[in-house]
Each structure stands twice: as C-alpha cells, then as structure tokens.
Design a protein around this nucleic acid. Structure first.
Length: 255
DNA sequence: ATGGTCGCGCTGCGA
C-alpha cells in the first residue's frame, strides 16, 4: 500500500515557510511529487525533508527560481530518470521519474500557456511530445503513475465557469481533446474513479478572492495506466492545505 | 472589468 501526494508548491521555500513540513508529517505520504519547486539543489530544505524520512530527488530548471520538479520518497527509488530526453523541455525541469519495483512514478509540470501564443504553442508541442514519450516508456515500464500539474481542466465539471472559460488557456477545446485522447490511450484519472462530484478544484487564482469563493480549476492529477485501476484504494484533494495557489492531490494505491 | 496577486531574483517576469 502506497500513498502518493502531488503538490504544485509554487516555490518550495515559500511553502516550507507556510508549514509544508508539518503538513507532510500529518498526512505521511509514501511518495511526494512536487512541481514548481522554483529552487536549485541545496535550496530545497533538503535536510528538513530527510529528517522526516524522505529520500530527496529533484530536477531543477536551468533558470533560477523557475519551474522544477521533484520526487521525495520514504523508500529509496531503484532508479531515477531526469527529464524526457528533449532539451527544450528538460532545461525547464518539467519531468522526473522514479522506479519502485515494476511501478514507475513520474512528477510532471506541464507548461502554462497563459502568457501568450508562443507559450501556448510550446504547451501544445509538449502535450504531444509527452504523450509520445509515455508511449515509448510503456514498452519497458508498463505500470505508470503520472502525477502532476497538467495545466488542463479535463471535463466541464472540473472548472467553476465552463461556458466563460472556453477561450482560456487550460480549458481550450484542443487541450481537452488532447486529454480525451490521452485517456483513450489507456490512462485513468484516479480521482474520478473515487469521486464524481463537481467543484473538486486543485487550483485557484491568487487574484480577486478566487479561493474564498471556490472559483477554481482541477488541473492536478494522478493519471494511472489502466492496468492499475483495480489497485486504487482511495483518492482525495486536500483543499484546506494552504501553502500555494494549488492544493495537494492524493491517491492511495495497493502496490 | 485588460484589473486582480503571488514567488523569485532583481528593479521585471512568469504564472
């Protein structure tokens, strides 16, 4: 039995300052996938995380204070793979993989497209390249847990005002079409196996009191290869955890 | 409503 927490911390140093360590002690996940660490190796309060029992593995962006992913785990991974082997993404620190027996866990931070056309195009390229990367990976690693910030709302029920947001990056028709294709490839949205309710968000804008009014988006997921569907024991979104503009998403798996 | 608010590294930028 392994519990996995995924958390876009929007700066791990800031999140630690807001009580992230105590939160992890309370929830006690076996594996933690972080996104947007915004820190270089040595800047991530590594000693604090090691002291509470985690092995620390991180993949930082070249640009300081930007992006960055990590996987912290109680059990030492058999193997760590940094990046997806495509330089334009890997310099931004967006993918890290840890193998535990026959299961591979990936922490992924999909690009945001909110700043304009150039980054939206970059995001769309990432989507298809990541999908191809996974297709290749599945030839040798058949059981995958792909945890992270996808920067896409999957379904109408995953966003507070779907009608109004159809032109917004993160809820564009082509992004949701990509997600539907991704699911058709044989990936399962673990949270939706457990919970089909509306208003289960994982991100709220810092602006205009969005979180207070629960005007949010569900953009953080644990997607599993469908051969793991029967292993899902439970799934939760910790909406009360306030160390970031995202909240942690959690899945408990039998492995 | 073209605003609003964060984190990080620097005096702006990306989200």
């Amino acid at each position: 039995m392994k519990s996995i927490l995924s958390y876009n911390v929007n700066g791990i140093r800031s999140a630690v300052g807001k009580g992230l360590i105590d939160f992890l002690v309370e929830i006690d996940p076996d594996i933690v996938c972080f996104q947007e660490t915004k820190a270089q190796p040595g800047q991530m309060h590594e000693d604090d995380f090691k002291r509470i029992g985690y092995h620390v593995n991180a993949f930082s962006a070249v640009k300081k204070g930007y992006s960055g992913v990590a996987i912290f785990s109680k059990q030492k991974p058999d193997h760590i793979e940094y990046g997806m082997g495509i330089e334009k993404y890997d310099v931004e620190g967006r993918v890290i993989r840890a193998d535990f027996g026959d299961i591979s866990v990936i922490s992924v931070y999909f690009p945001s497209g909110t700043t304009g056309d150039i980054r939206q195009s970059f995001k769309m390229e990432f989507l298809f390249d990541f999908q191809n990367y996974l297709a290749q990976l599945r030839k040798t690693r058949t059981k995958l847990v792909i945890s992270g910030d996808y920067n896409i709302c999957r379904l109408w029920i995953d966003i507070h005002n779907p009608e109004k947001q159809q032109g917004t990056s993160g809820f564009l028709p082509e992004e949701r079409e990509w997600f539907a294709n991704f699911v058709a490839d044989g990936f399962v949205d673990s949270f939706r196996v457990i919970n089909q309710e509306k208003h289960q968000y994982s991100w709220w804008s810092y602006r205009a009191g969005a979180r207070q009014n629960n005007k949010g988006w569900r953009i953080d997921y644990h997607m599993l290869t469908d051969n793991l569907t029967d292993r899902i024991l439970d799934a939760k979104i910790f909406q009360d955890a306030i160390h970031s503009d995202h909240c942690p998403v959690w899945v408990n798996l039998d492995f």
